[in-house]
Nucleic acid binder design. Structure first.
Lengths: 167, 167
DNA sequence: TTTTATTTTCAAAAAAAATTGAAAAATCTA
DNA sequence: TAGATTTTTCAATTTTTTTTGAAAATAAAA
């Protein structure tokens, strides 16, 4: 397989994988393209390579910047803005975990904190409900803490320690 | 807050949370409804409570059964089929991890195994590309192993061990 | 300042995903 | 077996999400 074919396949696969996890296919594809691009690309190049419109390109790149998965790069002498993505997949994974935690897990936990039935506390059904919600809240909190720990950790240290307890 | 209000809010929140993770909102809502239902429900009850059509109900319940998140229950004397969902959220989480691994992570790993540039192996760009892909493959494999370990583990044992290494 | 290049916005269009509902198939009962 | 009930299927419709592209805004150059 040559480089261009491989890049193309990877971009398609990353787009498809991302969309199964609630990430807009085009956004995932732009991310993939920048991950496998040697040099920073500008919006025109992204448009051209992925065959998408200027508006679409602009919106999705901005969203990737919000997610801290893509950075703007200033290239001296160039008028246009250029973009790059982190290539170290471990850093990428940590960023995604951090952002999903902040955007989705934390709001869920806040919501669950306020979700309690105070009437009929002796009723069996009410008890079960409150326990189910509590369980979800606690698991979510635990997941959040785990993510924090992973984010702080060094890759090799983390996996080595993890494997050690798992033996 | 009373039980019915709380259930309603939980169902809506679970639906919204699920849809951010690529799970059909209705499927997540049916799952939520069954998680907080004291007794098993039949399709008519689910339709009625969530205000959805028979076809939609049927398809999404079947999908939840595929995901092993919902079980068919036979109630003697009843002609209709009834459905329940596991209420232990830890078991639910493990099931979701196992299924997503099988459906999404494993196919990705298989794909990445075949994705290698064999031409121009000395070219710097080719080297970087192969390394990026290798990194993603290895991280995915590691994630898969971690999921396997979590699935096999007992909840408390797992978190205790985890916390220990994280001190 | 005016002109030119570039980026951003967003209403409208297109595409994708979810939902309906009625007919067909399957299952149960007598 | 025939009739009644329940479940499943799927073409058509609706809803949601994504994408487009041209106009507006912004930024740089002349």
């Amino acid at each position: 397989m040559n480089l261009d074919e491989a890049k193309k396949e990877f971009i398609a696969a990353w787009g498809s994988f991302g969309s199964k996890w609630g990430i807009n296919r085009t956004m995932a594809q732009i991310h993939a393209l920048l991950m496998v691009s040697h040099a920073p690309l500008n919006a025109d190049e992204v448009m051209e390579i992925l065959n998408i419109s200027r508006g679409n390109t602009n919106m999705n790149i901005r969203e990737l910047i919000n997610w801290q998965l893509v950075d703007r790069v200033i290239i001296s002498g160039e008028r246009k803005e250029f973009f790059t993505a982190e290539k170290d997949i471990w850093k990428v994974a940590k960023t995604i975990m951090r952002e999903r935690k902040r955007r989705e897990l934390e709001p869920l936990i806040e919501f669950l904190k306020d979700l309690k039935v105070n009437e009929d506390m002796n009723n069996e059904e009410v008890k079960t409900f409150n326990e189910t919600i509590k369980g979800i809240k606690e698991l979510s909190e635990q997941a959040g803490k785990t993510i924090d720990t992973i984010i702080k950790s060094d890759e090799h240290w983390f996996w080595n320690a993890f494997l050690k307890i798992m033996r």
